[in-house]
Simulated scan of single mutants.
Amino acid sequence: MTARTENSEMTSPRWSILKTIARRIRPLAPSASVQLNETFGKFIWGATGFHQFYVGAVAISVTLFNFIPIELQRRVIDEAVATKDIRRLAVLGAVYLAILGAYSSLKYVLMIYQGWMGESAIKTARDQLAEVACKRAKQPTEASGQTANVLGNEVDTVGGFVGTSISEFVVNTSMMMSVFAYMIYMEPLIAIFSLAAVIPQFFLARYLQQSLNQRVERQIGLVRKLGDQAVDRSSSKRAMLHATHRTTRTIFQNRIELYLLKFGLKSLLNIANSLGSLMVLLAGGYLVITGQTTIGTVMAFISGFQRLSDPTGDLLDFYRSYSQAKVQYRMIVDWVAGPDVDTR
């Protein structure tokens, strides 16, 4: 697709309304003085303030609407299908559809709210970093490659986490608590099996995250180093190419190590979730056979376990994103303070 074609598509009537809306939305002004030499938590609060609580309230609403279908599924099977009540089936189906529509709408609002907060935090950070970069640009020893990386991808990563930090934690934690409380109420034995499959995942993620953080920090330093080498005019072309090739090879090796750890952890978590589903199915099947529960309850538990494993995975992703964003923020603070130490 050519640039002219892309521009014509973006100026077409179907996209003009998006541009109009986007122009009317203003960035969030910091609620307090934001300093990039503060802790990561203070930066998040200074950049977004009470909006973290407002978006958290929206997140809790999303949780409630995502939780209701679990009970509706049980009632469809036990109250409508089992009794062959078509009218009841239609009513429950209509309620399910309404809940789905409300959930999707709230989820969309939540994602837009998160994106607005994140982009506002990015703008706040870039405004300050641009001032630092302009002052340093007058220094003959300033490395412009690092500046481009800091103002680009690194700030995007930190700001993106700021937008979702509190709300993602709230929505996933409240979802886990709601689903587990429902399981305990309906059938404590199956709930215990579900919990036994979830808890080890948190210990596993915490154990491996430190190794991931070390490689993330090294990756950031290597990319900054590559940016400096690519604009280095003090060396010959041959020396520049040799240095950049050596750095790109090291970046490749470090990235592969990251993949081995990251996807290895995901594979182990997927195995744990699959075993958890099997445990729920076997325990529920035994209770159905012995007449202690209904098929509808077991189906609700299988759906509930899925809704328990999804926020569990999201919480682990939140922890990983938080750890990596914290590393990246600290390295930005170090860059503001002075020249970085050469990464080997």
Rank of each mutant, 00 (worst) to 15 (best):
residue 306 Q to S: 13
residue 305 F to T: 00
residue 297 T to D: 08
residue 302 I to D: 09
residue 321 S to F: 05
residue 266 K to C: 12
residue 237 K to N: 15
residue 252 F to Q: 11
residue 277 S to V: 11
residue 306 Q to D: 14
residue 276 G to M: 01
residue 291 G to K: 03
residue 333 V to H: 10
residue 242 H to Q: 15
residue 284 G to L: 00
residue 299 M to L: 15
residue 323 S to F: 00
residue 249 R to V: 00
residue 331 M to R: 15
residue 282 L to Y: 12
residue 273 N to L: 04
residue 331 M to F: 09
residue 307 R to T: 06
residue 276 G to K: 01
residue 300 A to T: 07
residue 289 I to F: 11
residue 267 S to W: 15
residue 321 S to W: 11
residue 304 G to R: 01
residue 297 T to W: 01
residue 323 S to K: 02
residue 296 G to S: 07
residue 261 L to D: 09
residue 303 S to F: 15
residue 306 Q to P: 02
residue 245 H to Y: 06
residue 328 Q to K: 04
residue 327 V to A: 02
residue 300 A to R: 06
residue 262 K to C: 08
residue 277 S to Q: 12
residue 256 I to A: 01
residue 326 K to E: 06
residue 284 G to C: 03
residue 256 I to N: 10
residue 281 L to P: 02
residue 323 S to P: 00
residue 241 L to T: 10
residue 301 F to A: 07
residue 298 V to S: 00
residue 313 G to V: 04
residue 307 R to N: 15
residue 331 M to H: 06
residue 290 T to L: 09
residue 284 G to P: 01
residue 335 W to Y: 14
residue 243 A to K: 09
residue 251 I to L: 06
residue 254 N to L: 05
residue 256 I to E: 02
residue 324 Q to H: 03
residue 253 Q to N: 11
residue 235 S to W: 12
residue 323 S to D: 04
